[in-house]
């Protein structure tokens, strides 16, 4: 009895002759198919996030450099404030704008309140920093989740696929390679997709979280410097 004759009755159309990706997917168990589709979507999403974050961080770095150059160039802070007030997506600039707005409000009011001004500016800048960091960290959690759960999801698909192939062994009373191989191949394909999705996700997560830390430190450093400058101004005026 040729084992290849039995296979079509178990998995119609899936013989050892056509082990292409397409056939692997088409003839897989529905659980395995769902796992494969889910992992594919995860992979697309991971790469989309990665591309977006790469663009975001390079933009932030460039904007930060130009802003600091302008800030330390001796330009009037009022002019800089007016230039930056309407702009968005400018982390260090946003910090500067938030602090300047608080400063101007305190000076323009009826009674000049220098008394807690420094504290207020610090608070405002902290809020601005945390908002910026939150913006940078958005969707990084997706990368972390896919990176850690992807292999497990793939493994789940593999287990389901291997169970299917064992069922086909039981159905055909045959343990030859032709009966077992397609099921095992489809099952391992699920693990492969899981790894394909998870490996870039983990790498990008590590890269971007360190990038976020770097940017946050830069913002805090600027905030400290700016607070020092404003504090000197307050002391001189008061």
């Amino acid at each position: 009895m040729n084992p290849a004759d039995i296979v079509p009755s178990v998995a119609p159309g899936l013989t050892s002759d056509n082990l292409s990706l397409f056939h692997l997917f088409l003839h897989a168990h529905w659980i395995v198919e769902a796992v494969m589709v889910g992992l594919l979507v995860c992979s697309v999403w991971v790469w989309a996030i990665a591309i977006d974050k790469t663009l975001l961080f390079s933009r932030l770095r460039r904007a930060g450099d130009t802003f600091e150059a302008a800030f330390w160039s001796g330009q009037s802070l009022e002019e800089l404030y007016k230039a930056l007030a309407g702009q968005h997506g400018h982390s260090t600039g946003a910090l500067f704008v938030a602090a300047m707005r608080e400063w101007k409000r305190s000076l323009e009011g009826q009674a000049r309140s220098f008394a807690g001004l420094q504290m207020r500016i610090e608070k405002v800048m902290n809020v601005a920093i945390s908002r910026e960091v939150e913006n940078m960290e958005r969707r990084l959690l997706v990368l972390a989740t896919v990176g850690s759960a992807g292999p497990f999801i793939g493994l789940f698909g593999t287990v389901a696929g291997i169970m299917t192939s064992f069922q086909s062994i039981a159905a055909s009373q045959n343990t030859s390679l032709a009966v077992v191989a397609p099921g095992i191949a489809e099952a391992l394909f699920a693990t492969a997709i899981g790894l394909v999705a998870a490996i870039p996700a983990t790498i990008f997560y590590n890269k971007f979280s360190s990038e976020v830390n770097k940017q946050a430190q830069r913002l805090e450093g600027f905030a400290d410097e700016f607070t020092a400058i404003l504090s000197r101004q307050i002391d001189e005026r008061g």
């Binding site: 050892s16 697309v44 790469w47 030859s176």
Partner: peptide, 29 residues
């Protein structure tokens, strides 16, 4: 990002269909 990612994945799948399909697994009885 989403556009680029989708295009890249479709490209990878097409490459996989072309490259991996032409290797039948023949096990002699």
């Amino acid at each position: 990002g989403m556009t680029i990612s989708c295009i890249g994945h479709v490209g990878a799948l097409v490459w996989g269909l072309v490259a991996i399909s032409a290797q039948p697994l023949n096990s002699p009885a």
